[in-house]
């Protein structure tokens, strides 16, 4: 992704951090990998195991009741529930929504300090220590998956002991979001290099994928046609969220369209989201 905005953001970065800021070519020498996720909605039961696992793995602050009511709760992955059909023939449907790691990400172009960018492995990365908290990215994100830290997080004893040392604790004033469990990807890369081999399919499992009891979530390299994720992504049930926005997401959803459900476009078919927080 290159744009006038990004070029000027990089110029600011060079001015403040010196010439240590790598050039475009150095950061994006596309090595062919594209991490992505396939979410089979026909398997999702809305159990929230992924939400809990993510919260624990990624040191996400505890969402107290009033934070939820203020719509300032943080959940890098959330389950959106919506209804199909009218009572009594209504069916509850669930969609896990997380950062879509868009190939054409609206958040990346609006960051004035280049704190969010696309990395060579197709990840949309948030460099926390670079972020200055303008929240332009969160406002630019059509999926509402970027969360602002309105407070410094606190963990009462003994919960502080379960913090993950591989993940930074984000402080007040910056944006955070799903990383596809970057720490696990990094670890797999180091381990596989140690053992002088490539990263195997299924070796990297983000916490949400690992905890899903129905294996509705599958993670892998979408550019390698042999991975399970790639093969699932070819399914005729596939779609991507808000496809018409042209964001080119790395998260692919699978859903069989149920011919028996009549969709009322005026009522009944709206998502009950956790809502926009900003």
């Amino acid at each position: 992704m290159s744009s006038a905005h990004e070029a000027s953001a990089r110029a600011t970065a060079v001015a403040t951090l010196g010439e240590t800021i790598p050039t475009d070519a150095e950061v994006t020498p596309l090595d062919g990998r594209r991490w992505g996720m396939v979410i089979d909605l026909d398997r999702c039961t809305g159990c929230q195991a992924c939400v809990v696992a993510c919260q624990a793995e990624n040191n996400i602050a505890i969402n107290e009741e009033n934070r939820v009511l203020e719509r300032r709760a943080k959940t890098w992955i959330r389950i959106e529930r919506y209804w199909e059909g009218e009572f009594p023939n209504a069916k509850a449907r669930f969609i896990p929504v997380l950062c879509q790691h868009c190939g054409n990400a609206p958040c990346e172009t609006v960051c004035p300090v280049w704190a969010t960018y696309h990395n060579p492995e197709g990840l949309n990365v948030q460099v926390y220590n670079r972020c200055i908290g303008t929240r332009f990215c969160a406002n630019g994100c059509p999926y509402s998956v970027r969360y602002f830290n309105f407070w410094n997080p606190e963990w009462p004893e003994p919960l502080n002991n379960q913090l993950n040392p591989d993940v930074t604790v984000r402080t007040k004033g910056i944006i955070e979001k799903c990383t596809f469990c970057l720490q696990r990807i990094n670890r797999a890369r180091v381990t596989s290099k140690n053992e002088d081999r490539e990263i195997a399919d299924g070796e990297v499992q983000p916490a949400c994928v690992q905890s899903c009891p129905t294996t509705a979530l599958v993670f892998g390299d979408l550019n390698d046609p042999s991975t399970t994720a790639s093969r699932l992504a070819e399914s005729e049930r596939r779609y991507t969220l808000l496809e018409n926005f042209g964001t080119d997401p790395s998260v692919v959803y699978l859903k069989k369209v149920d011919p028996h459900v009549e969709i009322d476009h005026h009522h009944g078919h709206h998502a009950e989201t956790a809502g926009k927080h900003a």
Binding site: V27, N119, L123, V125, V127, R130, L182, Q183
Partner: peptide
């Protein structure tokens, strides 16, 4: 690697 994500977590 010079990718920010290599050194920043």
């Amino acid at each position: 690697s010079l990718d920010c994500a290599t050194c920043h977590k």
